[in-house]
């Protein structure tokens, strides 16, 4: 069975940790985010195709640009999840910026954009035009809610499929 390292990247308070919490049962404490800036979990992913994959999930502390250390944490990642907060327009811009930095570090890697906090429907702020533009670039985008669980499994599964794609 294959093991793949993936990273969670996004601005402060976009809900990365809540998404991970939703997705895995954590071995380690939240405190690692504030001490060494990352928390690692693993999750066995079973795809609809029947393929199985161990995802080693590096949840990197929220940041608007990658520091050296964060960049080190990206090493060996075969894919990543970009997370933006649907109720804060600037987090999408951060996500776009982070994606460029990651790509410059790792080269092209599969990734999925998660527009989180979909449960706060009336406060959604993301510019539909901007989203359409990202879609047209071929970005995979999944609306998620860590609160309700909406789209969480789907986002991970989609990244998993991309990782296994030849």
């Amino acid at each position: 069975m294959l093991t793949r390292k993936i990273c969670m990247i996004g601005d402060f308070a976009v809900g990365k940790t809540s998404l991970v919490e939703r997705y895995v049962h954590s071995t380690f404490s939240e405190e690692y985010h504030t001490t060494i800036g990352v928390k690692v979990d693993s999750k066995l992913l079973e795809l609809p195709s029947g393929d199985r994959l161990t995802l080693v999930l590096w949840d990197i502390a929220g940041t608007d640009r990658l520091a050296t250390l964060d960049a080190n944490y990206l090493q060996g990642a075969t894919g990543y999840l970009l997370v933006a907060d649907s109720t804060r327009r600037e987090t999408l811009e951060t996500a776009v910026g982070l994606q460029q930095q990651v790509e410059s570090r790792l080269g092209p890697r599969p990734f999925v954009l998660l527009t989180n906090k979909q449960d706060l429907g009336e406060q959604l702020e993301l510019n539909p035009d901007a989203l359409r533009q990202l879609d047209s670039r071929g970005w995979h985008r999944v609306p998620t809610s860590a609160l309700s669980g909406e789209g969480v499994e789907k986002a991970f599964a989609q990244l998993g499929q991309q990782l296994l794609a030849p």
Binding site: K39, V40, D41, S42, W58, L69, N72, Y73
Partner: peptide
Amino acid sequence: GGDRDAISGMLTAITQFVRDA
């Protein structure tokens, strides 16, 4: 026991953190 994959990751992260710090 424990999550070996996660332990490996965290050990690596700590190593990297110490080296960087």
